[in-house]
Amino acid sequence: MTSLFDENGRNIPCTVIEAGPCVVTQIKTKETDGYEAVQLSWGERKDKHTTKAMKGHFQKAKTSPKLKLAEFRDFQLNSEEELTLGQTLEVSSLFEEGDYVEAIGTSKGKGFQGVVRRHNFAGVGDATHGQHNRMRAPGSIGAASYPSRVFKGMKMAGRMGGDRVQVFNLRVLKIMPEENLIVVSGAIPGAKNSTVILEK
């Protein structure tokens, strides 16, 4: 993350995202697939790491094997032109400065966490009054002989992070078309160098 100043002199925290060039690898239509969508790809995948099936898929779009694929419904370019298979999309054809975008990514793994961190439980407020080592304990997880089981989905300790997270209302502060960079306000899910999906 870095920061930029806006015209009012406010310092805005922001994230730099490399968004492109994206190649259209498939155009799904109602007749063939039952729904309308556009499949975009980003990054280069080594030939030896690509399966034969995927090689064929990329061959159809007349492009080299790509690293990541993502599908978008209701896809529209800034201009009115029609999408074609194998077309390369730059950042500037999709986003404009001042747009609000959504970022979807996988959050950083936090490991095995207790309920206080994982589910925002309050913990026990007191260190005294009969408490010994119960400061961050979950408390009761249900009643006794009825139902004599713990309900599914009970909030308990466990693995945290690594979830799909969507962040809304990120403002596009800056676009650098030559480098295909896009600068959005605020933080986005995931570690550095991880992949996110941007939607408008």
């Binding site: 870095t2 930029l4 730099v16 800056k174 650098m176 960079l181 550095k192």
Partner: peptide, 13 residues
């Protein structure tokens, strides 16, 4: 990724 940040910061530098 930090190289990308440098590109963005270059103008302000």
């Amino acid at each position: 990724m930090s190289d990308l940040i440098k590109l963005v910061e270059a103008e302000d530098a």
